[in-house]
Design a protein around this nucleic acid. Sequence first.
DNA 1: CCAAATTGTTTTAAGCCTAAAATGTTTCCT
DNA 2: AGGAAACATTTTAGGCTTAAAACAATTTGG
Lengths: 172, 172
Amino acid sequence: MPGVSDCIEMLDSETKAAETPEDHAEELRLWLRLLTCTTLIEGEVRGRLRQRFDVTLPRFDLMAQLDKAPDGMTLSDVSKRMMVSNGNVTGLVERLVESGHLDRRTSETDRRVQVIRLTKLGRAEFRRMASEHETWIADLFADLTPKDVRELMRLLAKTKASAQKSAARRRP
Amino acid sequence: MPGVSDCIEMLDSETKAAETPEDHAEELRLWLRLLTCTTLIEGEVRGRLRQRFDVTLPRFDLMAQLDKAPDGMTLSDVSKRMMVSNGNVTGLVERLVESGHLDRRTSETDRRVQVIRLTKLGRAEFRRMASEHETWIADLFADLTPKDVRELMRLLAKTKASAQKSAARRRP
DNA sequence: CCAAATTGTTTTAAGCCTAAAATGTTTCCT
DNA sequence: AGGAAACATTTTAGGCTTAAAACAATTTGG
């Protein structure tokens, strides 16, 4: 019969797990709900970007990163920020340079490094899309009160920290 | 100078938006944080599935849907549940039938419909993966208290409802 | 100095994913 | 019955994504 002591022993999660299979159904449900929310919103944003501006979500995301960096970013920077693979960025950038939204040049000081920036066209188009994008997001979250938003921010920060810790445990 | 009345007027978000450009920075930050959390966890799960079981996340997700439906599901059902396109499911199923994890047959009563089920092999492999998967999730969320989990569940349910409402507004 | 390790990027091979059009089947409506 | 609408799935064309290997340039440690 489980009691208060479980909560204390559980601080050391290794030892006990081997003995009795824990019930992690709540966390699993939470993960599925988190994933559902994100997928739902992401799909909605993707569709609106395509319909309104004929642009893909990854292209928009990449431009968003560059808009915050007037002096440009290296491909690695972008890859880390967007949390996607290096090779992914290479292809994305290629297409955006091709369409005239990005400017790519090799760093003067380190010939391995490629620095990319928004072109004038790229920046103008991004700003136009971003302002509309912001209203979509506001609308998607419209039923949350300011307090809800604050609380979600706090809990998601905690979630992110927890997940990063767990990831680091596995891959130190 | 903004005051209390803004909070009240804002209940009708349409009218005011046209006059003064609102500040939706908070919602935007929330969305980015939500996306970061999901991407982080999803990447971690994807990597572990690949390393431990040499299986992709979409394959695992599809098997998870079928595990909950002993009598099988139609491709449309799966597509709706997974929130992915029909064509996507077709290909995914094809590969899983090929590898012997799924059984696909045309419905007796409606020749348009394909019913898919886990095979014995598929179910066994899924169960094996799922139990380990559950511990990963628990570990990723380990720093959240039971209260945090409950609160996140509540707020994400509210978020989902809000987003669905917004999506329905656009596409009635 | 120079070989080894590290870093930044690209390439490769395979799979995932979408939107839209096409195909085949059933239902609905008169 | 018979044509139109609705439905389930597949196909198509193109883009996204990853992991791993390959390549190129720099840094590091004898």
